[in-house]
Amino acid sequence: MISNFLNLFEDIFFNEKYSSLNFIIQKIDPRVKIFSSIALISIAILAKSILTLIILTSIIFILSIVSRIPLKIFLIRTSLIPLFTTLIALPLIFITPGNQILNLNFINITTEGVHKALIFILRVWTCVNSLILLTLTTKFSNIINAMEKLKIPKIFTVMISITYRFIFLSINEAYRMLLAKESRTFKKESRLKEIKTLASMLSTLFIRSYERGERVYLAMMARGYNGSVNNLEKMSINRRDVVFILIVLFICIIALSSEYFLGVS
């Protein structure tokens, strides 16, 4: 059961299947993609109209489709946060004063409320979509390389890449321990007892990870590590990247100006 869960988990969240494909978005320079994501998210944050948000989200969906990401995978990956947002937004429908659509004794739904909730959820969804599109179409090692090229301090990039590498191992270890614990518990335990077991598992994990870290350090030293990590990877911005970024900028400008100057809402 747990190993099934682990496979599913890896498959959903850490799959590099789609980032190693070779379609339009995958081919764009990762720096350009990071920049574009930030730009699209910023526009979504600034947008005030449902229409703008719908257009932005549609564009992102089109991009994900041309990068051959299965719609199902994309939806699973992007629905978690919007669902949670929906929970938060739900009360808005009832508490916002304004035009009543529905009025049953206590329940009181207004157009303003629905609009407010909808735009909130849609905005969050657009942002998540744009971020997950970046993740799904870019190999993790390329994101790290791009960060290195963008002069993010080495300690971050080196640590992120080693951390990422060992996350799977840690999750595996943690779940194997949980499984071992499950197989040895036969009755319902008190909460305090449960926290206690968890704490002892976490401290064991801590000690193991510490020792693993020491061994990894030795392995790095054995191969000449002296505090810095070099990289062969080269990146270059070509015509395709320039065109892509111009399109993204164009979309951003259109969206912003239609909102602010033409008053589309």
Binding site: V158, T163, F166, I167, S170, S209, V216, Y217
Partner: peptide, 17 residues
């Protein structure tokens, strides 16, 4: 650096429990 990284990975896993 590697030590902090493996511990970070462990805390990441722990956050999921």
């Amino acid at each position: 650096v590697p030590l902090m990284a493996t511990l970070t990975a462990m805390f990441f896993a722990a956050q999921m429990m």
